[in-house]
Computed example of a mutant assay.
Amino acid sequence: MGTDRMTAVVETDVAIIGAGPVGLFAVFECGMLRMKTVVIDALEEIGGQCAALYPEKPIFDIPAHPEIAGADLIAQLHKQCAPFNPLLMMGRRVDALRQEGDGFVLATSTGDTIRCKAVVVAAGAGAFGPNRPPLDRLAEFEATGGVRYMVSRREDFRGKQVVIAGGGDSAVDWALSLKQIAAKVTVVHRRDKFRCAPESAAQLKQAAERGEIELAIPYQLHGLEGEGGQLTGVSLATLKGEVKTVPADHLLAFFGLSMELGPIADWGLGLERSHIAVTPATCETTIPGIHAIGDIATYPGKLKLILQGFSEAAMAAHAIHPRVFPGEALHFEYSTSKGLPAAG
Rank of each mutant, 00 (worst) to 15 (best):
G23R: 04
V234R: 08
T144K: 07
L257I: 02
P341L: 03
K205A: 11
S177C: 13
A82N: 05
A175N: 11
E56W: 14
Y219T: 03
D95T: 15
A118G: 15
H321M: 13
A15F: 05
A297D: 08
R137C: 11
G226L: 03
K240S: 09
V14L: 00
W174A: 04
E227I: 07
T37R: 02
D295C: 09
Y219E: 00
L271E: 04
T12A: 00
F310T: 12
A82E: 08
G289M: 09
G124P: 10
T238Y: 01
G327N: 15
A208K: 09
R195I: 05
N131G: 13
F157S: 02
T238R: 01
I68W: 06
S258V: 03
A64V: 15
T238I: 01
E260L: 07
E212H: 04
T238H: 05
K36D: 12
G226Y: 04
Q220A: 07
T279H: 14
H250L: 03
G2V: 04
E214Y: 08
A216T: 08
R137A: 12
M1S: 10
A319P: 15
P55W: 05
F157Q: 01
T12I: 04
S274M: 12
V234N: 08
I59D: 12
L73A: 03
D95L: 14
V105K: 15
Y54I: 08
M35K: 08
V14C: 00
K205M: 05
I264W: 01
R98F: 15
T336Q: 11
G233S: 08
P134V: 13
R273K: 05
D295L: 07
E155K: 02
A19H: 03
G124A: 10
V27S: 06
E209A: 02
F157G: 00
I276M: 06
P58Q: 06
S152R: 03
A183Q: 07
T12C: 01
Q203G: 00
A15N: 00
A123I: 10
V14A: 01
S109D: 13
A19N: 02
L271K: 09
G309T: 13
E312D: 15
L252S: 00
A201D: 06
F325I: 14
E209L: 11
V10F: 02
A127L: 14
A237R: 08
G233D: 10
A165E: 05
K302W: 11
S170K: 00
K57A: 12
A19Y: 00
G129W: 14
K193C: 08
Y334R: 15
A71Y: 10
L73H: 02
L178S: 09
A75L: 10
A118I: 14
